[in-house]
Amino acid sequence: MSPNTRNPEGPLGAGVPAPDFRLPRSPDQAVSLRDFRGRPVIVAFYPADWSPVCGDQMALYNEVLPEFRRHGAELLGVSVDGVWCHAAFARDRKLHFPLLADFEPKGAVARRYGVYREGDGFTERALFVIDGEGVIRWSHVSPLGVNPGADGILRALEALAGDRTPA
């Protein structure tokens, strides 16, 4: 994890209950983290719609989505962009997963996850894999210019599947 002077407490790590949130996914719909209880959720904070690296990262996740879904996992992209910006970006990139607007109060959810960059006004490029009980099982912050890829997420999902003991 990259050192981050702006978040002295750093990003939330494995074993910590994931703070619940409710964020708009479109002008008239909102999504709560707790809606996904019972299955893994990947929360991918990214600095901004339209910036080239984010586009690559989200495009990659769009391609890897079937692999995430094989694990029953939902993917949520989060940035401080507003819903209309997200809508245009998602349409342009043909994204098949929701982009949530951490827009008002700006970055409030990112702050609770310890991944808001105060001086910049946007979020870190940060990944959280949350289990079906709402506990963070893996997190990772990349340097802003680096596409973190999907291997860490897939490995975390595989580890989760391995932990799940048959009833």
Binding site: Q57, N147, G149, D151, R155
Partner: peptide
């Protein structure tokens, strides 16, 4: 590829 860190 995904597991090997292929990003594009």
């Amino acid at each position: 590829g995904v597991l090997s860190g292929v990003n594009g």
